[in-house]
Design a protein around this nucleic acid. Structure first.
Length: 476
DNA sequence: ATAGGGTTAG
């Protein structure tokens, strides 16, 4: 159209083209459209504005989205607010999303079900149960329609926040369910180790002729993996092929996991050679140094710049007290100019999320937090644990321990929780860092010495520690 | 004829 020279695009044309870019998403093309719109003088149109805002929000360019949003000043309507909140939610900037949600109400704009999807999904990402519950109450109070998408977001939120029963209630109340809704429920149940329920739901889904997709099978296969159902898992894998559903990288990963957990390491190895990293994770506790060596070699050949590989292998060595190798990994990272984005733990107190990263001294109450860490260490020592375990809980001088273990984000978050919350007795910590070998052991010990329940959620599922007993099915 | 939303292993 531009090449033909006529007709000239108008605000409709640009808005539609922007939507296309947002859907792909295609940031480069979108930016060209932005300048095109500017040259054509179409930028002031509210539809072009929200088109641009949404383009940047969907491309996870929150700074750009925010600048468009700020430029809209008086023209901010429901769509603009929702799109911006969705942008923050998408990149995990939960507090920003929720602040904006409050600003929106203060500005007198009433949220609708689309807005609430982003808000609920922000709570899900954060594992913020109290917030999520109060937002759900808000939805009911305002009479906002809980439609298909919002129900799915609620299922996901309750599942990720640990209330699988509530997730189930939302699912059961739905009048219409599509593939994503079923998948959210199945993945949620799998995450909680409820394989039987997950598989029952899946077979109901098939009976109702709802077509599953690869995400559904992630739930199904991980449910099998968590519960040692190798044969079932392999059967579902065939089902997936028979249904013509193309396996994603994650699906392959589930299979490797499934086989490794049942001790079938050699089968996993030959199952698919491209999933070297999964193999590396799974061979952590297998003493198969041959597989560890080969997989890490392959990994570094394939992805020399991916910090996860270095962290994973470093933690693996730390777990086996091979400190010279840990040091070597650090050096190798430095030499290859690889930097790690620190893992983050967060804890929700009075509807606000406090985030911690490893060795982070920037928290305003860090002094008090360190006091609690020391107090925890004392208690742990008194309750008969090895000095080493206690040393893990607060800063240690010895280089080796320091490398692997000092002031983990999770411990900082737990200490802060103990500092700020007397009741209820449950501490919920959300953790992003993967491949962390010692966290769950330590959480269990802290839980026992304080007689308080600590729930740690990582990307995998919940680990519940109650006074020393552990309901986690395959506690490492 | 125009805008915003949900599920993804370890």
């Amino acid at each position: 159209m531009l090449r033909a020279g006529s007709p000239s695009p108008n605000s409709f044309t640009v808005a539609f083209a922007l939507k296309a870019c947002a859907t792909v998403p295609a940031l480069g093309e979108g930016r060209q459209l932005h300048s095109q719109a500017f040259r054509q003088g179409l930028e002031p149109s509210p539809y072009v504005q929200t088109g641009l805002l949404n383009l940047y929000a969907r491309c996870e360019e929150v700074a750009l989205a925010k600048s468009v949003f700020d430029g809209m000043a008086e023209d901010r309507n429901l769509v603009a607010w929702s799109s911006m909140i969705g942008g923050y939610s998408r990149v995990g900037m939960v507090n920003e999303a929720l602040d904006l949600f409050r600003d929106m109400q203060a500005a007198g704009v009433n949220p609708d079900e689309v807005t609430m999807v982003s808000v609920i999904s922000a709570c899900a990402k954060a594992g913020a149960l109290d917030l999520g519950r109060s937002v759900h109450a808000f939805i009911d109070r305002k009479g906002i329609t809980v439609d298909l998408e919002l129900s799915t977001a609620l299922i996901d939120m309750y599942a990720k926040c640990g209330l699988i029963e509530r997730a189930r209630l939302v699912f059961d109340a739905m009048v219409e369910r599509d593939t994503k809704a079923w998948s959210a429920m199945i993945v949620g149940l799998a995450m909680h180790g409820l394989a039987e329920d997950a598989l029952a739901i899946f077979s109901r889904m098939l009976q109702l002729k709802i077509r599953p997709n690869n995400v559904t099978f992630i739930g199904v296969l991980s449910a099998c993996a968590h519960n040692g159902l190798v044969d079932d898992g392999q059967r579902y894998w065939s089902t997936m092929q028979e249904m013509g559903i193309k396996a994603s990288m994650e699906n392959y990963g589930c299979m490797v996991d499934l086989l490794c957990r049942s001790g079938l390491l050699d089968e996993a190895y030959s199952f698919v050679t491209i999933i070297w990293r999964n193999l590396l994770v799974a061979s952590k506790s297998s003493n198969r140094t041959d597989i560890v060596g080969l997989a890490s070699k392959k990994l570094f050949e394939l992805e020399p710049q991916n910090p996860e590989n270095y962290v994973l292998l470093s933690n693996l060595y730390a777990l086996n007290s091979q400190w010279d190798r840990v040091r070597y990994m650090r050096k190798k990272m430095k030499d290859n100019n690889v930097t790690v984005v620190a893992g983050c733990s967060s804890i929700e107190i009075n509807s606000y999320l406090h985030k911690f990263v490893v060795s982070d001294g920037s928290h305003p109450e860090i002094k008090e937090i360190r006091v609690v860490l020391r107090e925890i260490a004392d208690r742990v020592l008194r309750s008969g644990h090895k000095p080493w375990t206690a040393a893990v809980l607060h800063d240690v001088g010895e280089e080796e321990k320091e490398i692997a273990l000092c002031e983990h984000s999770e411990r900082l978050a737990i200490a802060y929780g103990l500092l700020k919350t007397k009741a209820p007795h449950v501490i919920r910590v959300v953790k992003n860092l993967r491949f962390c070998p010692d966290c769950h052991e330590v959480s269990k010990i802290i839980s026992k010495s304080y007689g308080r329940e600590i729930i740690v959620r990582d990307r995998v599922r919940f680990h519940r520690f109650i006074g020393g007993s552990c309901s986690c099915k395959d506690f490492w």
